[in-house]
Design a protein around this nucleic acid. Structure first.
Lengths: 128, 128
DNA sequence: GTACGTGCAAATGATTTGCGTTAAG
DNA sequence: CTTAACGCAAATCATTTGCACGTAC
């Protein structure tokens, strides 16, 4: 029941802290492995799930693959349907407006105000 | 180059038409198989991709799995982080407002105004 | 008749799980 | 010490691909 603070967890958090490139689990694995060469993918997956359950990091689904980002203030995502690239943008206006509207809906308790917008990078990103 | 109208495509479209339960590819496969018992998963996957590329249906990513819905007007999704359930809701207000704000951002060309909001069903949905 | 589409089976890629071992508290 | 967490390998799940055959046009 006690939550242990292991090197693996610490390094994964350090890797993600201030990293807004939205890495996949595989990218986190490759990155953290530079510090901890013996870490396994299973550990990375387990901890990414653990850390998002605990609310330390955020998971974003794009094209069937989970990507991760540190938790910062509420923000939104522009997601390119072609290359899968994620751009963050902030808009308190939009956040407040969306919250106001969505709060009217019963049966749903908004936990995060992140919203995702789908479209295409203008400089045609030439596929993934 | 010619696009062929096959029974498989027709049945998949019929299955999805007016179906707002956001079925997965597997669910579409099981549903369409009642009409076409010999259809294969590969065909279902290929056609779901084909139909979304053509804009006949819409794909939504939830918890790493693709789900599909017929194309209707712009609308938004409330997605439960716990059980993965998707609720549709319409709000022209929100669509217009979001479009207005996001249009200011360069390098990004909005194709669809669908946006996803994450949270939790109020009646704690007891896992998937 | 000619590709485009299909069905099947095998391949791939992401993620999960079982299990014996290691190490945090 | 005790047991959560790890590392490894195998398993699972969603999705994709290669290929010979079928069929829409």
């Amino acid at each position: 029941m006690a939550v242990r603070l292991t090197n693996q967890r610490i390094e994964i958090l350090i890797y993600l802290k201030g990293n807004f490139t939205h890495p996949t689990a595989e990218e986190v694995y490759l990155g953290v492995r530079k510090k901890l060469p013996r870490i396994s993918r299973a550990t990375v997956y387990q901890n990414l799930k653990f850390l998002s359950d605990k609310g330390f990091i955020l998971e974003v689904d794009v094209k069937g693959v989970s990507r991760f980002e540190p938790v910062i203030g509420p923000h939104h995502h522009l997601i390119c349907r072609v290359c899968g690239k994620i751009m963050d943008f902030e808009s308190k206006e939009l956040t407040d407006y969306a919250m106001k509207i969505v709060k009217k809906i019963n049966d749903f308790d908004i936990k995060s105000t992140n919203s995702n917008f789908y479209g295409e990078c203008k400089k045609r990103c030439g596929g993934k």
